[in-house]
């Protein structure tokens, strides 16, 4: 059989930066940003728990909430994200717990990483691989991803709080951060 040459229908993705970005380092005196959304109440609860620990360690915490991404509100979201990032020393982005919310979590985290901030994405276990895939496609394959158990949002607050406690040390490790031992126990 004779052969033919066909054209590849795919387009190349942008170039990759495999670096995880800088470590967050000692947290005392720093301003830590936590990106939340309006879908996952479990992530609000975990963020509140971790906020208390960060404050006990001498850090300041600032929140940014992702809402609508279309229309004038979407345009304003992008503006406010950039302004918020500019006020931070390091940032935590969540929650990657569905398809589009993983997409937007990673989207916003890439903006943070590209701005040079120590950046960590928080994903539930089912979306861990997806978060890495989207990070790579967005040109940041080395993105730090901290993984929480799944399913999570289906649990009560009484069940979620222990998860926040259990996974805090792992978060600090993934962030490349450090806090004083006595303060960590607070």
């Amino acid at each position: 059989m004779s052969s033919i040459k066909v054209l590849d229908p795919t387009a190349n993705r942008q170039s990759d930066n495999a670096s995880p970005g800088p470590d967050a380092g000692p947290l005392a005196g720093k301003k830590i940003g936590i990106r939340v959304d309006q879908i996952w109440r479990c992530w609000d609860w975990i963020s509140e728990n971790w906020e208390a620990k960060f404050r006990a360690a001498g850090a300041e915490v600032s929140y940014w909430r992702s809402t609508n991404r279309s229309g004038e509100e979407g345009e304003e979201q992008l503006r406010s994200l950039v302004e918020w990032l500019d006020t931070l020393d390091c940032a935590i982005f969540g929650l990657a717990n569905c398809g589009s919310c993983t997409g937007w979590t990673v989207h916003d985290a890439i903006a943070s990483a590209n701005a040079g901030l120590p950046t960590t994405v928080v994903a539930t276990q089912n979306f861990e691989e997806f978060a890495h895939e989207l990070s790579e496609r967005g040109g940041r394959s080395g993105m730090r991803v901290h993984v929480l158990p799944y399913p999570l949002n289906e649990l009560s607050r009484a069940e979620v709080d222990p998860v926040a406690e259990e996974y805090f040390d792992g978060l600090i490790k993934v962030m490349g951060a450090s806090i004083g031992e006595q303060k960590a126990a607070a």
Binding site: R69, S70, G71, G74, E75, C98, G99, S100, T102, G103, W104, H107, F130, L134
Partner: peptide, 14 residues
């Protein structure tokens, strides 16, 4: 177009 939200459309569980 940005308002079409292809970013979310591509990734979603929907």
């Amino acid at each position: 177009q940005p308002d079409f939200e292809l970013y979310g459309v591509n990734a979603t569980t929907a």
